[in-house]
Design a binder for these strands. Sequence first.
DNA 1: ACATTTATGTCAACGGGTTGACATATGAAA
DNA 2: TTTCATATGTCAACCCGTTGACATAAATGT
Lengths: 327, 327
Amino acid sequence: MKPKIEDVAKLAGVSPTTVSRVMNNRGYISDETREKVQNAMNELNYFPNDVARSLFNKRSNIIGLILPTTSNPFFGELTFHLENICAEMGYKVLLCNSLNAIDKEEKYLEMLLRNQVDGIIVGTHNRGILDYHKQNLAVVAIDRYLSETIPVVGSDNYEGGTMAAELLMSGGCQCIVLIDGIGELETPARLRRKAYSDVMKRNGRAPIIYEIPEVFDRQSQQEVISRIFSEHPDVDGVFATNDLFAASFINEAKRHGKEVPGEIKVIGYDGTETAQTLMPELTTIKQPIARIARTAIDILVKKIEGDMKESPQETRLPVKIVKGTTA
Amino acid sequence: MKPKIEDVAKLAGVSPTTVSRVMNNRGYISDETREKVQNAMNELNYFPNDVARSLFNKRSNIIGLILPTTSNPFFGELTFHLENICAEMGYKVLLCNSLNAIDKEEKYLEMLLRNQVDGIIVGTHNRGILDYHKQNLAVVAIDRYLSETIPVVGSDNYEGGTMAAELLMSGGCQCIVLIDGIGELETPARLRRKAYSDVMKRNGRAPIIYEIPEVFDRQSQQEVISRIFSEHPDVDGVFATNDLFAASFINEAKRHGKEVPGEIKVIGYDGTETAQTLMPELTTIKQPIARIARTAIDILVKKIEGDMKESPQETRLPVKIVKGTTA
DNA sequence: ACATTTATGTCAACGGGTTGACATATGAAA
DNA sequence: TTTCATATGTCAACCCGTTGACATAAATGT
């Protein structure tokens, strides 16, 4: 059986209270006793039971993280940074890959609530407006509007979208297509699309938008992308709202015998380390992932620690254009 | 304040015990009562406190996951599958990105123990031989030897390494270089190197091995790789033990004016979805990531549920060669 | 010599839910 | 009528660590 405080106390020849005092640095303890207790803990391989502590303290020091999937390099890297920062600050991370499925998201939310998480970072679907703010729980969203009271952190999507569209425009592209995810609701990431549309309109062009249903199935992605070539054979510029879409498009372009950037210029979005390594030639809009993570956690922790002074409703971190050779 | 069982009981006009019986399906409950209780729970937005449950049951239903970093697409995808399978089986996942740092790994291990996890999946450094088996905790390793008693799950590294080396060999390569991570200890992934060396020796060649220190810094990777060109200008075949290394090499080859596969053939390892999307031309050895995840969890859960019948010490899942155009 | 500070002990309540023991009461089957 | 399965209640102990109240005693200060 796992040793408990009582076992440590017995071995150290002190009372359980004293052991607790040692662990929590409360009251008076002599160096001698402290040492005895610590020796006993080592000898028994004792670790305090955080479940019991959490119960009493009503504080789990756990943060829930809900996002589509760590398979996507953007979220993989984001997850890494978020978890790292949490660990640094003494928080633990319960991971949830919701795959943007509403039912999963709901189940995960309930799971996190049952587990008494101190806060949640949400980087996924946004329908749960009701559920998220119903509990009065610290929540921060990444690139999602969940409700008026939930702070949002993300890159400056509109600026990024503008940069991308204008780069293609100034590169002389005549037929610029946008490849985006499915656009159900008003997310900040949607501003990439809005920026594209605005640039197009400003230049007297009609936006051409293709929506890719699933992030997780290469097959169906290819099909949508393939349609671009039949429906817009004159396409000579593509802005993809993430690097994976951009890569898929480039692959498809090759299959159609089109040269990038000779015949078609392509620019992506995200600029993950992974994409930069695997496809360094890709021109893309790089999000400051580490800063997004840091900012989100900072705001969340302030909320948790009860710093109720208004946190900024929306934080837009600057993006950078990474010039490869594809645009 | 969060509602508790007592509040539900009051609202439903029953006793706390009855509420507990409803939640746990124990004893006799009439449909009528069950409904009253459920209505009360909904009305109050009640969720049972899993911390309290865990404390009593001595079972947290939490699995700890320690791996280098979810930034790496292999671990990102592995994490996704592991977490998904866990969720399916009612387990939650506490995520730890150890960056292969021993001190971090130790802190994480302690954290997981304090949190009373039911089991741990380890996909990281392996030094902690002592610590992992000291506690009698369910542990399964992914591609790491931790101790004789800890099951290991991974791809058939030796077979994969052999396939890769032989492909280059049969492609007529004369000077075949291996790019590997740092090789401190005897990990199964090290078998990729062993297979390469064996193939080389079998063909009367001396193995040429380059070790890349950090997985996480593109800069220093490039430096090591660059050395290959000065030290072995006649290199015409490269086996990289992961796709990121392969990509880095290919980038560097371009900078050195070498054509792939014309002048140098390259083959990687892992075959993640991400790499396949971003660099579909890369020839690689594809690991069955989903199966690795499934197998690891299956074994772990059996251990947790006390199915003490020997689990296989080592499981080697078959790899597939994915022929791109780089080799 | 007396007041403080330091050091430790005992004890009980608490956090929220679970469970076994036991009591009670109805309706149905024998 | 008796028995039994069904249905619910009360109560207390338990999971493990924390904390406040209170007691005791030695060491230190004045």
